[in-house]
Design a protein around this nucleic acid. Structure first.
Lengths: 223, 223
DNA sequence: ACCTGAACACCGTTCAAGT
DNA sequence: ACCTGAACACCGTTCAAGT
């Protein structure tokens, strides 16, 4: 509420923080994260390069603000609607994230190179925690699940957009995507080899990922 | 086998490709991906900046070669051992990857910003596919599972190293890590709220991730 | 308070010249 | 064949000076 207040009198600002971020985003879209430059932003909004530092203290601050605005733009309507089943709420979030990230592929790099510690980033993680708490997780555990889900969504999209830059045929791409779908569970398929007999019948992907995470975090797998 | 052959006579090389990559890696370790520079590499190995272009055609090529060498360094012994149960083989790979990536956190950025399309990258994906084929997946489906697993491992480590740069207490970090462990399955916890009743009893994390992936790839969820 | 021009210490890459 | 010095077109950031 104090956005247009408190500005000390003097020469009026030539542009706005939003215009700076708009320019940064258009550079991001045009050439990826590496193509975003302070000088390019300045040229686009029509001020001298160093004038950018009146709006943000550094290029890193510009990128942080861009990530924050990006996260603020994802639609939370279905996500926070407690009337909906929790599955639909999480799916809505994942879909929203994917929509925005495919529209701005460079943003994936930005998201993965920082810990999303701004207000909107924390809010998103908290909302996700709430959903999973509604789903029946203990409050503490829900925070954990939100981490796993974000990892999965961001990681999957990161690799997807990396592949988009490659000279693959569309057919390759489609089959790669479909390829991901059916194999999350190896249980869904008949055992065809002898070594496959080593798998116990009731071993699920759920247990598998659980054990994998445990190992990745340096703890002993349960025996 | 033709590495030291075929070099046309003339002035001998002052350094080696490996020395260039060593220098690049030390810069990566010291200051992250952004700190790797052609000029810095040249200074470290003791040649002029432009002499680097006798060894690699561009900075991007240096980084690609670095990723390739990195992937070649992961120990495949336990991973390719068909005597071991497939779970242990995949876990060995995940652990190996994590060990190397935590030792060289900047490499995560490199891996996630490219599609790992070099020989070693493809070999790793193929090996992973073989393991899952041994586990009973149909050959085509196994390629898909390897994608999911790589996403999970790389994504998880990317966020982990991003958090390492933050001013968190060790206690925070440990609890965050433990937090990830227990909540991959919401099924493991008792339902405590009314909305939780919307979850069917036999709904597993496996099905959940499966549906999520399907949605992320733009296909209709099954009803 | 905000802008500008000029400068500093960098970058990746190219080119002509040396051996 | 490989190296060097010099140059080109950049980069983020700082500083002194203007209004």
């Amino acid at each position: 509420m104090a956005t247009s207040m408190g500005r000390r009198t003097g020469r009026p600002r030539a542009v706005t923080e939003q215009a700076i971020l708009d320019a940064a985003l258009s550079q991001l879209d045009a050439g990826g994260a590496a193509a975003v430059s302070v000088r390019g932003i300045a040229a686009q909004v029509g001020i001298a390069p160093n004038a950018v530092y009146t709006y943000f203290p550094s290029k890193a601050a510009v990128l942080r603000a861009l990530v924050e605005r990006f996260l603020g733009d994802v639609n939370h309507d279905r996500f926070v609607d407690r009337q909906l089943p929790w599955r639909q709420r999480v799916e809505a979030l994942a879909l929203e994230l994917r929509t925005h990230l495919v529209a701005h592929p460079g943003a994936v790099q930005l998201l993965l190179s920082g810990p999303m510690s701004g207000p909107n980033g924390l809010a998103l993680r908290e909302s996700l925690s709430e959903v999973l708490a509604d789903a029946g997780s203990a409050p503490d555990d829900a925070a954990r699940a939100s981490y796993v889900l974000l990892v999965y969504v961001l990681g999957a999209i990161a690799l997807e957009v990396a592949e988009l830059d490659q000279p693959h045929t569309e057919r390759d791409r489609v089959s790669t995507r479909r390829a991901v779908l059916d194999t999350i569970s190896v249980e869904a398929y008949p055992r065809t080899t002898e070594t496959a007999a080593t798998i116990s019948k009731d071993f699920t992907t759920e247990q598998f990922l659980w054990g994998l995470t445990r190992i990745l975090n340096g703890l002993q797998p349960q025996t």
